[in-house]
């Protein structure tokens, strides 16, 4: 799984951090998403898929057998 984020689309809701804090964080200054792990281990794939689906700005994309 390869995770990419689009900072320009991020609205700072932090839904991804609530779901997968090992993969996503937010910048202190404006809340924009910070990708901590672009290739998360298999046990996290399900929750990362959920994060990509529920992101209210559609700012998270998954690739490579996601």
């Amino acid at each position: 799984m390869k995770v990419t984020v689009d900072e320009a689309m991020c609205c700072g809701a932090g839904q991804c951090v609530l779901l997968a804090p090992d993969v996503f964080d937010q910048r202190d200054e404006d809340g924009v998403v910070v990708l901590l792990d672009a290739a998360p281990p298999e046990p996290l794939h399900a929750v990362v898929r959920e994060a990509a689906s529920v992101c209210p700005a559609a700012a998270i994309s998954l690739g490579e057998g996601a």
């Binding site: 700072g12 809701a13 932090g14 951090v17 937010q26 910048r27 404006d30 809340g31």
Partner: peptide, 10 residues
Amino acid sequence: NMPKQARMRR
């Protein structure tokens, strides 16, 4: 203008 800090108090 503090999205992260607000979320941390959710």
